[in-house]
């Protein structure tokens, strides 16, 4: 293009504030942690609460990442996402019991404990992925493009699955013992840090980095990101977006199942409606992160987790409204969420 102006774009030096602006959401986490440090009297309490908040955030992220991908690519509002959380927890806990994990007389070696847990998590993910396949085909496929119908029909799917859990596992809540090596806490600077929470943080972080690599470093990830923006064009380039839809729906369901296992072991009790209960926080995270954004989802989940734990300590009565308050504040700042995903449609 010889006639196009050839000029080297130059950039005026930006002020510090301008350069920090794109990273503002990530800095919010640091700011929140520092605010907590200032307000919470004892350092040991702050450490305990921060680890608890991060752990909670990571588990919510695990669940919400699947939800945000499904919304971003398929444009489906899946109120049934909670069903996968519950089923994941029940299948995972059953697998754990079948493998002998968590029993007091089990071999206390850490490796076999963690292997058992990993196998249980894989069983939960496999079960929820297959369930996702069926859910997409039977419940979601007829309502692509119709949000109101999606809400109604996926809500119905959630109720059916909850009742099916009653049929299979009975109506009572089930108490769960964590595997031996994940019980108890480490003491650090006078603060008790639960081992399970540290594991949850590590797992969540690994998942985030893995998802990031998948989305940025692989062709499948490129296709998903491209499909979120303009599915029609992805098809016009010759890719079958239907197969991509199904794969993402299954992956999203499996992530919810994994989150369900983690959450169940964290609470040490599982119920058929646990998934529906967590979904309120999951929705908040997906909305404040920016619908379809994995990064936004990650940061949103950590913010929610930290804020909830700090507020529960400082002003217990305000804990329940703190998440809603955070959502309101963030939407006033960035109405499309922290990392808005561009939509061509």
């Amino acid at each position: 293009m010889s006639l196009a102006p050839e000029h080297a774009p130059t950039m005026a030096r930006q002020s510090l504030l301008q350069r920090l602006e794109p990273h503002a959401p990530a800095l919010l986490i640091a700011a929140l942690a520092l605010a907590g440090l200032a307000l919470i009297p004892a350092l040991s309490s702050w450490i305990t609460l921060t680890v608890a908040g991060l752990a909670m955030g990571m588990m919510i992220f695990t669940i919400a990442s699947g939800m945000t991908l499904v919304f971003g690519l398929l444009d489906v509002i899946n109120f049934g996402h909670g069903a996968f959380i519950s089923v994941g927890a029940f299948v995972g806990v059953s697998a754990l019991a079948a493998l002998g994990g968590g029993a007091p007389d089990a071999d206390p070696s850490a490796l076999s404990d963690l292997t058992t847990l990993a196998l249980a998590a894989i069983a939960a993910m496999a079960a929820t992925a297959l369930m996702g396949l069926a859910f997409e085909r039977v419940i979601v496929r007829p309502v692509y493009g119709a949000h109101l119908k999606q809400i109604l029909v996926t809500m119905g799917g959630l109720i059916i699955v909850q009742q099916l859990i009653f049929v299979v596992w009975g109506p009572d809540e089930i108490h769960v013992a964590r595997p031996e090596s994940l019980k108890g806490a480490w003491t650090f600077a006078g603060a008790a840090v639960e081992k399970y929470r540290v594991m949850a943080v590590g797992l969540g972080l690994a998942l985030f980095l893995g998802l990031r690599w998948l989305m940025r470093g692989t062709k499948v990830g490129l296709l998903v990101r491209a499909g979120v923006e303009n599915g029609e064009m992805v098809e016009a380039l010759g890719y079958d977006i239907r197969r991509l839809f199904i794969a993402v729906f299954m992956a999203g369901s499996a992530l919810a199942g994994l989150g369900g296992v983690m959450w169940g072991l964290y609470q040490e009790v599982i119920t058929a409606h646990m998934g529906g209960d967590i979904m309120v926080m999951v929705f908040i995270v997906v909305i404040i992160g920016g619908l379809g954004s994995v990064e936004g989802c990650f940061i949103g989940a950590l913010l929610i987790g930290l804020l909830y734990n700090y507020v529960a300590f400082l002003a217990p009565k305000a804990a329940l409204v703190s998440n809603i308050g955070l959502m309101v504040a963030i939407l006033m700042w960035r109405p499309q969420g922290m990392f808005p995903v561009v939509k061509a449609k």
Partner: peptide, 22 residues
């Protein structure tokens, strides 16, 4: 559509269809 594209039809739409995030 994908089958038509694989058969050798390319599309340069009016909206350009660029993936801006990529």
């Amino acid at each position: 559509t994908p089958r038509r594209a694989r058969a050798g039809i390319a599309d340069v739409p009016e909206s350009m269809g660029i993936f801006t995030d990529l």
